[in-house]
Design a protein around this nucleic acid. Sequence first.
DNA 1: CAAATTTAAAAGTAATACTTTCATTTTAAT
DNA 2: ATTAAAATGAAAGTATTACTTTTAAATTTG
Lengths: 225, 225
Amino acid sequence: MSTILSSLTLTIPEKIYIKDPQSSKLGRRILEYSIQLIRQEGLEKFTFKKLAKKINSNESSVYRYFENKHMLMLYLISWYWGWLEYKLVFRTNNIEDKEDVLKRAIIAITETPRRDETFGFINEEELHYIIVQEYSKAFHTKDVDEENENGYFIIYRRLVERLSKIILNYNPSYCYPLTLSNTVIQGALKQNFLHQHFKHLSDFKETDEEPITKFFQNLIFNSLK
Amino acid sequence: MSTILSSLTLTIPEKIYIKDPQSSKLGRRILEYSIQLIRQEGLEKFTFKKLAKKINSNESSVYRYFENKHMLMLYLISWYWGWLEYKLVFRTNNIEDKEDVLKRAIIAITETPRRDETFGFINEEELHYIIVQEYSKAFHTKDVDEENENGYFIIYRRLVERLSKIILNYNPSYCYPLTLSNTVIQGALKQNFLHQHFKHLSDFKETDEEPITKFFQNLIFNSLK
DNA sequence: CAAATTTAAAAGTAATACTTTCATTTTAAT
DNA sequence: ATTAAAATGAAAGTATTACTTTTAAATTTG
């Protein structure tokens, strides 16, 4: 993606944060370095105290932006889904051929991200890494239903719906567009995780290029034809 | 499944526990009631203290069986995978037709379990519920690689490999048997979760019978044909 | 029945996840 | 440039958690 759109910012549902972290220097430092620190320590051992120390700030200051680390994680996850949505739209824009649109959509969602300068202070490559490791913990809580009502997952919903429409557009008689859309989006993350930590449960070789994308393209086009 | 085999017990890797919970009355009570309590409270709010109170025992006694709640969860998850493996083998045993074998395998893995008397003190229906909600938390830790080396996930591995062989047997030229096998096993759990908590992201109606099974059968057979 | 093992009760420790208070700095408005 | 408002930092405080230790009582086993 180009740096032309570098003034773009992704909008995250207000209820997720106390004070908008994109609105201040400290807030942006919190986002930038929390990704680094979560990657280093893992979500379990990551604390606001450690983060504050890392950015030469104070625990209580971090708490003024996010209620707790769970909410910070929800913020980062929303950011990630928003970014995927943006990629999806950008890459399929102005394309006529329905098969081509679906092909490009699958690539946008399943490819391994490289550092991308579009949104300045977020390192997309590193964010992808922590999403792969940690995202399901933020979903799978006792309070999902309540959090869902609060709109915490609205960006994910939009992403799934967008992809499902592209699927349905390609094959209008397919019965499971939403289910397949979910399967691709979440399955891609899961396969990344398995490929990293359970090599023997993966069919891919080190030399394969974007094997996860290839798997899902094969799966989807065979399934929809 | 019948109750004929009620004396069967599933073998769980030794390293997961300190003292085998299947070997004593207290141990079995720990397993039985931990499932209930995790379901009630969610894994986050579940503590050994609460569990001990529920079974009229003591915190320190529970710690003599499991190092911590993470290990208890790994035990329950291994038990679940072991149970799926058992179902898979039992249901496909003596069947000749390769397509039929694969069909039955998909059912065994993706169907919604009912209370099954095969293994006495474990409520399979309730276990399935907590696996759907919580299992990915036990996978996605900073220590996966180490835990993997310790053999904590060996039963999962066996299950994935078994299903992948059935897939490959049905279509020997298919390139991604392991990846597809993982996608089905983990995807089925994920779809259960979505169906429960994100109804609008699901194509299924309340009246559909075993829609998740149908989705995966459609996906796999279209993809392998 | 005696010895070995298991369990219960209670108290203790270190870390975590916040909260509160108050002083200081920064920013924004006139 | 002055002042009020807002944001930040430092430090101390609280409740809970996750686990450990010790000792005594109960249970099992040989």
